[in-house]
């Protein structure tokens, strides 16, 4: 997409340091997940064994999951299991946690992906107003960012259900149909949750993109470009859009990485069988291994999104490629 030039060594060092930071965060997250596992009230072995288990059965489970050893030995043992792809078994449904994740994550990632696209479309249309401060579109964008941030996501979802499902009956009120197997029904089931989610994200995006466009349009190089007689759209497309994207990409990255958390609310409103619903049920039922794995998945999502944002900087900011500035 960009004629790619830069200092290979600088770029490699930059990427390595970002990846190392990500691994550090992941390690920290695994400690948190482990600590939470132990802070959850109740005795894990007793809950896993069930209410009618004998003391011998509880002891057997303690041995099996290494719950009777020192904390450090237990932590190491847990990592061994994780690296072998064993995240434990759900206490509630008695299904492998890896199986539950394989079932729910694609559903949620589809929702997050479609919602992000919806949000970006809204945002780019509205942010064009940011090119000229005080224009009608700019004022709409400003109002949008305040109203959009103030509407609780689940209330927006309820209003959408009342209007489109209950009142007009155009779209289903909830549930999930795979858009990969049944495109029409699948997209219909995605429409309300994706728009609800997308509106919330676009409120955050709009606020940032508008401000960063307003800032960039005041820069000297924009004035120079105008003085050279370029048309306004050329100034925006060639000179202003890339620098304006830098803070924006950061915000999109944060929003997408934390969206697994927000998916909990949206999925609960629309009875969507994704990762969010799974995590909410797991916390409510104290489903130890699912909670633990869920926290790890959320941390991993944050780490991956951050590394992707750092890669995007490489394309947007030549100073990073050449090792100057920042």
């Amino acid at each position: 997409m960009v004629p790619w030039r830069g200092n290979v060594r600088t770029v490699t060092r930059y990427l390595m340091s970002r990846i190392a930071g990500g691994v550090g965060t992941l390690a920290g997250g695994s400690v948190v997940a482990f600590v939470v596992f132990h802070l959850l009230p109740g005795n894990p072995a007793e809950i896993i064994a069930g209410t009618h288990a004998s003391a011998a059965q509880v002891a057997a489970i303690q041995r099996e999951f290494a719950l009777n050893q020192s904390l450090i030995a237990e932590f190491v043992g847990w990592w061994e299991h994780v690296l072998h792809g064993n995240l434990g078994v759900s206490v509630v449904s008695n299904v492998l946690v890896t199986h539950l994740l394989a079932q729910t994550l694609p559903v949620t990632l589809t929702l997050v992906g479609v919602s992000t696209v919806v949000a970006l479309v809204f945002t780019f249309v509205l942010s064009l107003g940011g090119l000229r401060k005080g224009s009608l579109l700019d004022r709409i964008a400003l109002g949008w960012s305040v109203v959009g941030l103030s509407i609780p996501t689940f209330w927006l979802g309820i209003l959408a259900i009342l209007l489109f499902a209950v009142h007009w009956g155009w779209l289903p009120a909830g549930g999930y149909v795979s858009p990969y197997s049944y495109p029409v029904a699948g997209l219909k089931s995605l429409a309300l949750p994706a728009i609800t989610f997308g509106i919330y994200m676009s409120a955050i995006f709009t606020q940032f993109l508008r401000r960063s466009f307003l800032d960039v349009m005041r820069e000297d190089f924009v004035r120079t470009a105008r003085a050279r007689g370029l048309r306004e759209w050329q100034v925006v497309a060639r000179h202003a859009s890339k620098p304006a994207m830098i803070p924006f990409v950061t915000v999109v990255g944060i929003a997408v990485s934390t969206s697994l958390g927000f998916a909990m609310v949206v999925e609960t409103v629309f009875a969507y069988p994704g990762f969010g619903s799974l995590f909410v049920q797991a916390i409510t039922a104290r489903d130890y291994y699912v909670v633990q794995a869920g926290i790890m998945v959320i941390v991993a999502a944050v780490v991956v999104a951050n590394i992707l944002v750092d890669v995007a900087y490489l394309f947007l900011d030549p100073r990073i490629r050449y090792g100057r500035g920042t």
Binding site: G28, L260, G261
Partner: peptide, 20 residues
């Protein structure tokens, strides 16, 4: 920074799960 990396709702839910 570490705390801010987590979704706030997840932290809050975890606290509720622990404290009751």
């Amino acid at each position: 920074d570490f705390m801010l990396a987590f979704p706030t709702l997840v932290i809050a839910m975890t606290i509720v799960a622990i404290v009751g």
